[in-house]
Amino acid sequence: MQIVRGWCPICSIPISCQSRREIFEHFLILSCLKSKLGVFNGWFNGDFAKCMARNENNLWIATAVTLKNTFFGFVIGRVVAASRRA
């Protein structure tokens, strides 16, 4: 039996130790590239689109939303600071 050594940052707690493979698998699932059954979601058969529709907070949407909020917070913050100066 092969023992997979976990990978984690030095300071993290033991429960967060995950193998790189496990993290990568989770990345594929969260980004709708793979189903939870381990099958790759096809682009043309619509599996990817279905996964995206089913999971409202998939990695793509989550990243896009965070980026959008960061951008607006940043821009509005700068604009308000500029208008205060003026």
């Binding site: 960061t70 607006f72 940043f74 700068r78 205060r84």
Partner: peptide
Amino acid sequence: DTSKIVTSWIVVVFLVFFNT
């Protein structure tokens, strides 16, 4: 999303204003 933008704004605005 509004609350996130406002939180972000609160953090950014003072930094930029005082730096300027």
